[in-house]
Design a protein around this nucleic acid. Structure first.
Lengths: 152, 152
DNA sequence: TGACTCATGTCAGGATTCTGACATAGCCTC
DNA sequence: GAGGCTATGTCAGAATCCTGACATGAGTCA
């Protein structure tokens, strides 16, 4: 049914398109990660940890865009499965620096390759200049949204 | 940091930036919708329904990027609160065409204005040409992700 | 030193979404 | 008309994520 009404046109809304693209990306990632027994959130956590070893629970949460409570339960699971390690006592303050184990690094390697193939597929059909444009434009959107959030 | 070799560089990854932008947009929408007693999913459902009256449960689900089961529980709540109406019996097949009530339309109006202000803020700092670029590039990403998903 | 503020880790409860499953209606082919 | 295929609406259970709350440690300031 293609019945156009009045009001905001979702088909031309960049916000809607942004959600659509993000949703398509997540679905594509889930599709390639599922056979590996890994979820998108788990992969994101491991990938972030590989690039920034020793990140704390709260820092990981912010990097993966979930609450620190959700990240806490995820880290407990990853720790139980031997993918990451955390010291039993905080070396300084309450912060528990997390690190990947060998098992975690190997598990991440295959997942990372799969995700990379998805990103390559997503960028197929775009020139290098277009990718640069996309990067700059998305960065501008994020900055505008964050800055306007707390003007007081 | 330093070791990029095998891993995806999240700071330069368009996929990560896409997730970041989508997350920031959702957070900004939740912030302005919360005082109105409305969630992002509810708003999206009502907005879609305003533009395409008579949409079915499954069609709404695809438009809002959730499963039809989730949309079903949402529609039941909206119906209970008098924001939408569905016929008790399907006029044709099993499809139940959903429509906004006057109450639903009024509730949507204020929410729609709030969301529009967020989108305006998001696009501040971008020229018309840049917005056109963003639209075209995001569309290309979605198409590439969907097409490659089922190569048979 | 003591009070205040902020960030962190964690537990508990609730809300939202998803996966699995079933019955049914429309469409297509034979 | 019979059979297969797809899509839909719906119920039930499980997984995931979030909000609320508490205690603790670091930093600031009088």
């Amino acid at each position: 049914m293609s019945q156009d009404g009045a009001g905001v046109d979702l088909e031309k809304s960049l916000g809607y398109l942004l959600k659509e693209a993000s949703s398509a990306l997540r679905a594509a990632m889930e599709e390639v990660l599922r056979p590996l027994g890994m979820s998108v959130t788990r992969y994101a956590c491991l990938e972030l940890l590989a690039q920034r070893p020793g990140l704390s629970n709260s820092e990981l949460a912010r990097g993966v865009f979930v609450t620190r409570q959700s990240m806490n339960v995820l880290l407990q699971a990853l720790e139980r499965e031997g993918l990451v390690v955390r010291p039993t006592a905080a070396p300084v303050g309450k912060v528990l620096p997390t690190r990947l184990t060998g098992h975690g690094r190997r598990s991440l390697a295959t997942a990372s390759a799969a995700v990379r193939s998805v990103e390559v597929r997503m960028l197929a059909g775009l020139t290098g200049a277009e990718q640069e444009n996309a990067y700059r434009i998305l960065r501008s959107m994020v900055r505008s949204l964050r800055d306007g959030a707390a003007p007081a």
